[in-house]
Simulated scan of single mutants.
Amino acid sequence: MRELVRTNDIVLVSAIGALLDGANIDHLVADQNMSIIEGSLGILPRRILVHDDDVDAARQVLVDAGLSHELRPDE
């Protein structure tokens, strides 16, 4: 799996998840449960991961949605 986005914005995480779901792209939100440790302060970023085979399609979905500035640099 490869990291697509890293953010502290839980609304953005939800929106990106909905976009990927709409495009039938499986994804995983990593570090989502870290809020228990940090006390729900939003300090620790959540990471959205997609399968290696879906990276290009997922990146294009976010570009089309005007969220290209949120993408992690492509390796």
Rank of each mutant, 00 (worst) to 15 (best):
I16F: 06
L44S: 09
G66W: 15
D9W: 12
I16V: 15
D64W: 05
D64L: 02
E70Q: 08
M34Q: 13
M34I: 10
L71T: 04
R6M: 02
N24T: 11
I36D: 07
D74Y: 14
A30Y: 10
S14Q: 11
N24K: 14
V29R: 04
I16A: 03
D9P: 03
L49P: 00
E38W: 14
A15W: 12
N33S: 08
L12Y: 13
A58H: 07
G66R: 12
L49W: 11
D54M: 04
A58S: 08
R2Y: 14
G39R: 15
G42C: 09
L12D: 06
N24L: 02
I25S: 06
V29M: 03
R46K: 15
M34C: 01
V5S: 01
Q60P: 00
V63Y: 10
G42H: 15
L49Y: 13
P73I: 08
I43L: 10
G22H: 12
D53I: 04
V61Q: 10
V13C: 08
R59G: 00
S35I: 09
D74V: 05
I10C: 03
G66L: 05
M34D: 14
L28C: 03
L19S: 10
S68N: 10
E3V: 09
V63S: 03
A18M: 11
D31T: 12
H69D: 12
L20G: 03
Q32N: 03
L28P: 00
R6L: 02
V50A: 05
E3F: 02
